[in-house]
Design a protein around this nucleic acid. Sequence first.
DNA 1: CCTCGAACTTAACGCAGGTTAATGCGGACG
DNA 2: CGTCCGCATTAACCTGCGTTAAGTTCGAGG
Lengths: 244, 244
Amino acid sequence: MMQMTDCAACPLQKRRMFLPFTPEEIAFMRAFKTGEAVVRPGETLLAQGERSERLYTVLEGFATRSIQLEDGRRQVVNFVFPGDFLGLQAGIMGEMRHSVQATTPMRVCIFQRSRLWDLFRDKPDRAYDLTWLAAVEEHFLGETIATLGQRDATERVAWALARIWQRLSALGEITPDGVALPFRQHELADALGLSKVHTSRTVSQLRALGLLVWRRGRLNMPDPARLFALAGLPMEREEQRPLI
Amino acid sequence: MMQMTDCAACPLQKRRMFLPFTPEEIAFMRAFKTGEAVVRPGETLLAQGERSERLYTVLEGFATRSIQLEDGRRQVVNFVFPGDFLGLQAGIMGEMRHSVQATTPMRVCIFQRSRLWDLFRDKPDRAYDLTWLAAVEEHFLGETIATLGQRDATERVAWALARIWQRLSALGEITPDGVALPFRQHELADALGLSKVHTSRTVSQLRALGLLVWRRGRLNMPDPARLFALAGLPMEREEQRPLI
DNA sequence: CCTCGAACTTAACGCAGGTTAATGCGGACG
DNA sequence: CGTCCGCATTAACCTGCGTTAAGTTCGAGG
């Protein structure tokens, strides 16, 4: 165990996409939090099949949630960003059905699964927030299903980049020359059900259309409105979300 | 409003896939439930974009949850079975992001969205159950994403039919000549991201392999183990689930 | 018994995207 | 400054699935 940030000084609170903690919430979270961990790129934070005793909130860094099929094929279910809560599945259903793998260095808060029930019993508002997060997650998964089921490669890539852009932007990660993309084409491909080669072709095509600039881990969008339109997404700002 | 079944005599309780109510739960559910409705095939129970004040539990009958894209394409996100809880998205996020459409006659219990918070405040165990259901749902959506992203048409069809079979079987709907399938090929196709034509071809192929018999709304599986293997699914029985 | 329509089936053809493989490029390290 | 390696790109070829369109089959209603 390493030095642990106090919840009162939670770095996530500086990002305006998150609802501020009330003093009681800080007190509760302080007691709920049992540690902190650093994860290196490529490391597996939660493994499919594992019965993890731990739950996490991402403080910093990025990851993928992915499912491994029997024969080795891999599907990235979605991307993980700071503020995301991890491990609810194992926490509630007993066993993780997917893995979480860091794509950048990460820092995470640690909670104990055994205390999840206390949260429901003693802090209904926190439990409600947790369910809120689960409902939002469910919505995004539904959108992903619609994308994989109905959209062609161009639309898919546009959609994924638009969603990632939106999330990074809500986190305040945008600079004049765009954002640092924490994922590689390989992960995009696995998330969209496309081959790496075709993903590259498709990205090139979007580049040729002047819809994006993506080089060496930096992404920029010369004309966000057009890209969002192609992705079938409205351009609204994301709602603030609670933090567990 | 029509005549309303008392929760103490809830017909779902007869099905062994559901955890039995405790006496207090019955008392609570009785107060929580505000009505009952009958829905005809084809009717829309919840519409995408709507801010429904109502939540439902399915007592009888089947439905699809689907997302409509801007240009009219439709993706069936999943299938709805008796015991499923509907409307949590609108209940928690404010707006439905998908529609729920009956594919058979249905009967549903009605609850008020405004009282959802009471449930969290007063009945932490019920709130926990609700979150449990959400977590299981999330797991299935993840599996669907993996299927659409990685599996070919044959595997997809096998997967969908195996999952539906499993659920119907848990509901006790299996007879010696199989189950009554409440969905048509059209809906399967929309759920799997395949065209109707190719879905038909693929079903024929599975039929030719002796893996299934599906005629006029009845499905049978001569060799479930082989079909499940093809679908990449273990053949275990589903866990009992709570009922809201 | 006949007609009609919904659901499904079958066949022919074309294309989006998979696969394989060769090539380019920049960053890390000696 | 040169080599290596991981990642991205490009090209050539192939196939699974979409599309269109012409049947079937069966049940409902006259």
